[in-house]
Structure formats: C-alpha cells, structure tokens
Simulated scan of single mutants.
Amino acid sequence: MKNASTNFRHLYYFWVVAKEGSITRAAERLGLAVQTVSSQITLLEQSVGKVLFTQQGRRLVLSEAGEVAHKYADQIFLLGEQMQEALDGAGNLRTRLTVGIADSLPKLTAFRLLETTTRLALPVRLVCYEDQHDALLADLALHKLDVVLTDRALSTGSTLRVFSHMLFESEMTVVGTAGLAAAYAEQFPKKLNGAPFLLPTRNNALRTKIDEWFELQGVHPDIVGEFEDNALLNTFGRRGLGLFFAPAALAVDLAEQLQAVLVGRVPQVREQFYAISNERKIQHPAVAAILASVHQGELGSG
C-alpha cells in the first residue's frame, strides 16, 4: 500500500545502499545492523509501492524505479549537505573545502596542490582527511568530500558517479641520503643490483611500473621495506635505510625536507596525479584554483 508521506530516514538508507551496492557495506558505513537496514529498505519499497533493487550475483543493482528514486535522493541529500555547510559557515568569511587525500599520494604533492588555496582572494578553510583510495571515493559519492586527490584515475568499471580530472604527471627519480647516493649514483642504473630499496606496497599504482622497470634493467634490488603510507616510506628514506622513488617535480622540496640526493632519473616510470569530483566541470572555487595553478605550470610534469 502506497503512503504519500515518504520517510526520509528510509530514503537515506536506500541512498547509501545504492552507493555501496550492498546492504552489508551500507550497514557498516551507517553503523547499523544488516537486518535494520534491510527492513528499512523493505518498508520504503512498501511505502512507494515499487521494487527498488534487484539482485545480480552478490551485488544489488537499482531497478528502473530505483534509478528514478536514486536521482531524486541524490538531489535531496546533496542539498541537505549544502544547507548544513551553509548553516555551519554562517558568519564565517572562509569557504570550506573538504579534501580526501589518498594515503599513497606523496604528502609534498598534496601540500603543493593545496597551497594554492591559501592565496585566493576568498579565504579558504581546509578540512583534510586521509584514507585509502576506494574509501575516499565512497565518501565523495556520498557528498562527504568536495574533492579527492589521488595517484590513480577512476576505474573504468566503477559504478560511482564521480569524475577524474588529470592534474599532471611527473617522471620518477631514485633518491637517497648523500651516503647512499655516493655509493650508487655511478653507472646508474647498472650498479643498483643488490642496492637497498624502500618501495610502495603492491596495491600502489606506482609499484607495478617500478617492478617492470627493474625487470627491464635486469636489476634485482634488496627490498628492505614496503610501505602503504608514503610519508612513512619517506621517513625511513630520510634515515638512510634505503633508496626510494620520488617525483622529479618535487626535487627541490625533497632536497630541503628529506635531504634527498638524486641518484638517477627514471623517465620510463611516470606517476600521474588526479583530482576526482562529483562534477564533470569543477564548480568549487578552491578546486578550480588548484586546476588553474597546475595548468599555469606552478606544479607540472618533470
């Protein structure tokens, strides 16, 4: 039986399930029991008189009616988020920019990109969160973030309604402390056989490219450590525990902050950096400023 009054709590649970593609994942994100979310979806379907989801394998997909409901839910909850931000910011002269930073993204890169926002005519209040790439995209799709800065593009198979914006790419370099550089810079890269290296873990977009380069060069390094967090990798590198890869575009910062000395350039390995948003065309003035600074060459290809 249809009910003219839609329960917005039920609608919100539906919206999260649609984003997650699974009641289990939606329940985890909402902090509720699976049975609770499932029953709320059932009540919503009874209220509107339509089946909103169909099962495809282990994944829930939207029915035709569900697609219609989802479009309206997107607008409703986005407006709700914007209203809350407007109320929070009432009397505050600063524009809020909520940024998700992938844990694999070099922190110096994130700083360089976000530094632009400190020079805008309109003051910006930065709110930064760090997490894994996929978790940040889920939060972006739920409009909890304005933009995600990451080192990988959106997967072609993704069902999330978000868009990748290529910022720039940089060739990589091998760097290390002065002592390590002195030991391995000569006859680079032939002398790298057995050299101590600190590398990103294999779930990092850059790691496959690095491994392929080692194989092409016939180099078998001594992998001292693998790190998911780039900042931790850099800390170990600064202590001289191994050579590591870094973007050529950040050479000056690396020298100043990590005392990293160039061992050799690796033009065959390039790292890409992206901004991912909910919009095809960036509307947020601070995000637009980041893109403009990149296009003007303030932080570009190495």
Rank of each mutant, 00 (worst) to 15 (best):
R119V: 00
Y129D: 15
A182H: 02
F168N: 02
G179D: 07
A182N: 04
C128N: 14
L120T: 04
R125K: 15
V174Q: 03
L145S: 03
A121F: 00
V147A: 04
H165V: 05
A141C: 12
E171F: 09
Q132S: 12
C128T: 15
T150D: 08
V147S: 05
S170Y: 04
S158D: 07
V127A: 15
L122Y: 00
C128L: 15
G176N: 05
T116K: 10
E171G: 09
S170F: 02
T116G: 01
T156A: 14
E130L: 12
L140G: 07
G157Y: 01
V127H: 14
A178Q: 11
T173I: 09
V175S: 07
F168Y: 13
D131Y: 14
M172D: 03
L113K: 02
D146A: 10
S164P: 15
S170W: 03
H143C: 09
V148R: 06
E171N: 11
V127G: 09
V162P: 08
E169K: 13
T118G: 00
L137R: 06
L120M: 15
T177V: 05
A141Q: 11
T156E: 14
A141I: 09
A121I: 00
R152N: 07
S170R: 02
G157Q: 07
E169T: 12
V148A: 07
A138I: 14
A153F: 07
L154Q: 11
E171Y: 11
D146G: 12
L114F: 02
R125M: 13
R112S: 01
E171H: 09
C128V: 15
V174I: 11
L120F: 01
G179K: 06
D131Q: 14
T159F: 09
F163V: 11
L140P: 08
L113R: 01
A178D: 05
H165F: 09
T177Q: 01
H165T: 05
T117H: 09
T177P: 03
R119A: 10
E169R: 14
L136S: 04
H133S: 07
A153G: 12
L154F: 06
T173L: 13
L126Y: 10
M172V: 00
S158M: 08
T150E: 08
T150M: 08
E171L: 07
R161M: 11
L137S: 05
C128H: 10
D151W: 01
Y129N: 13
D134W: 07
D131T: 11
A178Y: 00
A135S: 14
R125L: 13
F111C: 00
L154P: 03
T177C: 02
P123Y: 08
D131E: 15
S164H: 04
L154E: 05
R125I: 01
F168G: 04
R112P: 00
M166W: 12
A138H: 12
V148L: 10
T156C: 06
L137V: 06
C128Q: 15
Y129A: 14
D134Q: 13
L180I: 02
L114T: 05
E171M: 07
